[in-house]
């Protein structure tokens, strides 16, 4: 077998793998546009074709709980993104622009904390929030999310701050700026991509979070979007499932995330497996 045919075969294999891998996402979107009566038939429809409909989306948001859940998710996400970006930015500047006693321990603690599973703490967090009356509240869940998201955002931003050579600031200081002025005029404008990437990371974490939300938001009136989606799955245990509506609901939850994810993806891989900085 020549090298060329080998390469062609491998390319074919890659395309087949790509189709298999994307199939669940395709199936979600496809099912969300096929009328439910057709989904209930034994033979699946692989294309909506003549049965294309928006009815599933209408029935997904029909009972009104969708907008409440959307409001919860948006409020929590906005708080988490804003607070995390502010706090993490300060922390990242501290560890990448200063050498101080305890710096290594701080970095080490951040990395270890980031690994703590929600499952190992959520019962304690539940007790804490219930004892101060913050169950089912935006504030209670936001406090936990901020603590969970800060470590990685500090680590990620640290890479961006360190990526701006300190020599640039030094040059500005020689020209008579104070250290703070030099930082704000030279380094800060160069950090915009880092702030966007970290902000999107915080957004994804808060928007997708399921585990802590199950524990801290037990009331139906306090659902976030992932919990709202869970409602459809739970309902399916007791009555005939409207799979069209369920997949429409999944699509609604997934699409904004997929778009934002594509923006930030490269940074997340390198942040998790390395120093997130190529000096």
């Amino acid at each position: 077998m020549s090298r060329r045919t080998g390469r062609t075969l491998l390319s074919l294999l890659a395309v087949v793998v790509a189709l298999v891998w994307v199939f669940p996402v395709y199936w979600m979107v496809n099912s969300s546009f096929v009328s439910n009566a057709v989904l209930q038939q034994f033979t699946p429809r692989f294309f909506p074709g003549e049965y294309f409909t928006f009815a599933n989306f209408q029935s997904a948001i029909a009972d009104g709980s969708f907008f409440g859940a959307l409001g919860m998710s948006v409020s929590i996400t906005l708080i988490v993104v804003a607070v995390c970006l502010g706090f993490a930015f300060l922390g990242a500047v501290a560890i990448s622009r200063f050498r101080f006693r305890g710096r290594t321990s701080f970095v080490l603690a951040l990395l270890l904390i980031q690994m703590l599973p929600a499952e190992g703490l959520f019962i304690a967090q539940y007790k804490m929030m219930s004892s101060v009356g913050l169950l089912n509240s935006i504030l209670g869940v936001s406090i936990i999310y901020v603590a969970a998201v800060i470590p990685f955002t500090v680590w990620m931003l640290r890479g961006f701050v360190a990526g701006v050579p300190a020599e640039l600031e030094e040059a500005a200081m020689v020209d008579g700026l104070s250290r703070f002025q030099a930082f704000m005029r030279i380094t800060f404008p160069l950090l915009a991509p880092g702030l966007v990437a970290s902000g999107v990371y915080a957004f994804l974490q808060a928007w997708n979070e399921f585990t802590v939300a199950v524990v801290l938001l037990p009331a139906e009136s306090a659902q976030t979007l992932p919990l709202w989606l869970r409602g459809f799955v739970q309902a399916s245990a007791t009555r005939e499932t409207d799979w069209g509506a369920v997949m429409a609901a999944s699509t609604i939850v997934a699409v904004p995330v997929i778009i934002f994810f594509l923006i930030v993806q490269g940074r997340m891989t390198s942040g998790l497996v390395g120093g997130a900085v190529k000096g």
Partner: peptide, 23 residues
Amino acid sequence: TLQISLLLAWATPVAAATTIFIW
């Protein structure tokens, strides 16, 4: 092609992904 397909799977939120697999 392969990378785009993988990215779409990666980007799907866990609640949505699990719901899809149940279906």
